[in-house]
Simulated scan of single mutants.
Amino acid sequence: MARTNKRKQQQKQKAPTAVAPKRTRRDMLAWTGLGALGLGVVAGGGAWAVSSFNRSVTERDLSRIGQGVPSVVQVHDPQCPICNALQRETRKALSDMEGDQPLYLIADITQTPGAVFAQVQGVPHVTLLLFDAAGNRVETLNGSRTRDQLLPAFEQLMKANG
């Protein structure tokens, strides 16, 4: 038995012991920097999500029509690629405008207020309705359009109400 114990003791002495790596100040600073970067990404994403949600709610408030500012209302189906393309082109045309811009509103036909609005107006989706400052419909633009086609119509709407 003495021999077995002696051999085990020798093996224990030869076996490397696991030593936890020493954490340096440099390692801690690196982890702190990565944590700060991650926090910035999460905070930026959250701010974008809140901003996007607020814009979406504001754009769907159809009660803003006729409250002293001309309006462009898109009758929109979010699942329709043509509607989404028209929305992109409308936003580009509005951003290209110099001076005042009309309100841009969305009548989402997948939600009750938007569907009721489209039915009352008697129009299908992929349609832009232009309203003067008093809320009177002055023009209907059906189908897909480019920003170059939309910009003159929007400018004319603002001139007529200026």
Results as ranks from 00 to 15, higher is better:
residue 106 I to M: 09
residue 70 P to K: 03
residue 20 A to M: 15
residue 58 T to H: 01
residue 119 Q to A: 14
residue 94 L to A: 09
residue 69 V to N: 09
residue 106 I to T: 05
residue 19 V to M: 00
residue 109 I to Y: 06
residue 119 Q to S: 14
residue 112 T to P: 13
residue 114 G to D: 02
residue 96 D to G: 08
residue 111 Q to W: 10
residue 156 Q to H: 14
residue 28 M to N: 06
residue 156 Q to R: 15
residue 130 L to Y: 01
residue 16 P to L: 08
residue 3 R to V: 15
residue 88 R to A: 05
residue 22 K to E: 14
residue 78 P to L: 09
residue 13 Q to I: 02
residue 92 K to G: 00
residue 156 Q to V: 13
residue 147 R to F: 04
residue 95 S to Q: 01
residue 48 W to R: 08
residue 64 R to F: 11
residue 59 E to M: 08
residue 74 Q to I: 14
residue 36 A to Q: 01
residue 80 C to G: 04
residue 78 P to N: 07
residue 82 I to F: 05
residue 33 G to I: 06
residue 74 Q to A: 13
residue 13 Q to N: 07
residue 93 A to C: 06
residue 54 N to F: 06
residue 24 T to M: 05
residue 38 G to C: 01
residue 152 P to F: 12
residue 150 L to H: 06
residue 86 L to G: 01
residue 80 C to L: 09
residue 143 G to R: 09
residue 52 S to T: 12
residue 39 L to A: 11
residue 45 G to R: 04
residue 112 T to V: 15
residue 95 S to R: 00
residue 55 R to S: 07
residue 22 K to F: 12
residue 29 L to N: 09
residue 14 K to P: 11
residue 38 G to W: 05
residue 147 R to W: 01
residue 117 F to G: 08
residue 80 C to W: 11
residue 142 N to P: 11
residue 37 L to T: 04
residue 46 G to A: 04
residue 53 F to S: 12
residue 162 G to A: 09
residue 32 T to I: 00
residue 12 K to Y: 07
residue 87 Q to R: 11
residue 117 F to K: 07
residue 22 K to H: 14
